[in-house]
Design a protein around this nucleic acid. Sequence first.
RNA 1: UGCCCAAUAGUAUAAUGGUAGUACAGCAGAUUUUGGUUCUGCUUGUCUUGGUUCGAAUCCAGGUUGGGCAACCA
Length: 554
Amino acid sequence: MSEERSLNFLEQIIEEDIANGVNGGRVHTRFPPEPNGYLHIGHAKSICLNFGLAQKYNGLTNLRFDDTNPVKEDVEYVESIMEDVKWMGFQWNEVLFASDYFDQLYIYAETLIQKGLAYVDESTPEQIATFKGTPTTVGKPTPARSRSVEENLQLFREMKDGKHPDGAMVLRAKVDLASPNMLLRDPIMYRIKHAHHHRTGDKWCIYPMYDFAHGQSDSIEKITHSVCTLEFIPHRPLYDWFIKELDIFPSHQYEFARLNLSYTVMSKRKLLQLVQEGTVTGWDDPRMPTISGFRRKGYTAASIREFCERIGIAKRDNLIDLSLLEFCIREELNKTANRVMAVLDPIKLVITNYEAGKTEILNGENNPEDPNGGSREIPFSNTLYIEREDFMENPPKKFFRLGVGLSVRLKHAYIVKCESFEKDENGNVTTIYCSYIPESKSGSDTSGINVKGTIHWVSAAHAETAEVRLYDRLFKVENPAAEEGDFKDFINPDSLHIVEKAYIEPALAKAQLGDRFQFLRKGYFAVDPDSKPGALVFNRTVTLKDTWAKESKH
RNA sequence: UGCCCAAUAGUAUAAUGGUAGUACAGCAGAUUUUGGUUCUGCUUGUCUUGGUUCGAAUCCAGGUUGGGCAACCA
C-alpha cells in the first residue's frame, strides 16, 4: 500500500528504454557545468535530476566540466562546484573535463574536413552573420565554403599550430545554409584563442565551441540520457548530425524546463555582476541564490533536495514561489533545531517584586518536537531583556503581549504583569516594570492563571552578545528578469539588516559552525563562518511563519 | 511574419481516452507555555474554436498566448 509518486516524463522515457532494452538497459547521466561561476539553486535542480535518475535506475552519473572557453573559466569555480555537488549529497562516477577530449575532438574535426563536411572560413564575424541570412531568409555561402579538402586541412593545421592570430579564421561545419534552424547554418566548430587554459595550459590555441564539444563528450562517455534545459532543444539536431557523420555512440538529449525562483535572478552573468560590483559580499553571500549562499544562510542539503523533489520536472516555463523553498527548510528545522532565546531589539524589563541580585536556574526544553531533545539550564533574575516589539504603550485589542495592565508568560519562567514603564527624553521606552506571580513557575504552576501570550527573554546579567544578520529577499519584484530595464534597479535596498549586539542566553554561546537553532519566535538561525571565539555571528536562515505580523498590517 | 517548444487553481505538478487530484500560497476555525508546530474545513483550474469518440485535460486541425533560435558564450 505504498503511495507511489507518478513518474515525470524523463522517468517515463527511461523506463520505456529499459523495457525495450535500449543500451542494454544501462542508464548513464552526467552533470555538465561550465566552470565560469558558482552553482545556483537551478543547478541544484539539475543535480538532483541527473544524479537522482541514475540512482533510481541503478546507473551512473559523471561530473563533467564543459571547459571549452579558457578566457571565462577558472579553477576556483571547479573547486567550488565539486564542493557543492558533494555537499548536495551526491557521488559522481568520475570527474571529467571536456578538455580531456581536446585531442579526440581535434581528430573528429579533421575527420569531418576529410569528408568534405567542414571548412575553414576567414570571414569576419559580421560577414558570417550576414551570410547566414535571417530566420525568414536563407543563408548564402561565403567564398570559403567551396575550398578544397586539402586546403581546409592545411589551414586548420595552421590554426592549430598558432600560425594565425585570434579571430583570423574559424572552422565551420558544412551542414545546411537554408535550414530553418539557424544553428544548422554552418555552425562554427573551432575558433582561435591564444589563451592559457586552466587544465591544458598552453598546449592549444584553438578551442572547440560548446556545440562541437558537448554532444561528442556525451558520446565519448557513453552517456545514455543527456539531460539539459529547454534552450538547447534547437541544438539537438546539430549534435545528432555530428554523431551521425562521425559514426560514434548515439547519446540522446532530453530537455526540461530550468528552475526560476521568485524574487531572485538565476543567470550566472547577472550573479557574477552582483559579485563583481560588490552588491553582495561574494558568491556565498546568504542573499545569493547560489548553493553556497543557501548553505551559508543555514539551508540544509536535504531541504534543497526536498524542494527539488516537490517542484517536479516538466517542459513548461515556470516561476516557483520562494515560499515553497522556505516551507522545505522550516519543515526540516522545526523537527531538528533546538529552541533558544535571543533578544534582537532589547528593552529592559525589571521585576519589582523579585529579589534583586538573586539568580534562579530554570530548566528549558530544547525542542518540543523532539522527545529526545533534552533540556538546558537558563538563568533568571529580576532584570531581563525582552523584545521591544513585545511591548506597546497603546496596545490594540488582540495584542497578546505587554502593555500596562497586561500579563504574559515569560517562556520557561513566570507570568508577569506590566505595571508601568519609563521613557527617555526622546520618548523611547527604556524600562518596563512588572510584578511576577511566584506560584506561576513553569512546570509547577499552581496559580490557576491563564495568559494568552508567551514571550522570550534573557537575563541581563547573564546574557552573552552576538551579531545577528537578518536577510530579506534580494529583489523587490517577483520576476526581475521579466522587468524592463536594468535588473539592478529592482534590488531590495533592505535585503540585509545587521544587529550588531543581540543578547543571547548563555547556553547559546557554545554554538559551533554548522549549528542551527530556532530563536524562539524569531526564526531559524545558523552560525556564520565569520564567527570568532567570543564573537559569534548568526545568519537568519528563514523567519517563522508569522500570522500576527500579517494580520497587524491591515 | 520562418522554425522549434509549451499551455490544467495565485504558483507548481498529477490524471497517459473513463470521477480533474496533490503540494505550496490564501481564508476560516480548534489546539498550543513559540501569534511556531499540529489538526479540521474552505475558496480557486483543463487558453480558444471546431473535429474524432458512447465518452476528450488527454487524440486531430485551425487560432490565441507565452518562451526559445540569426554569440568566434555555454
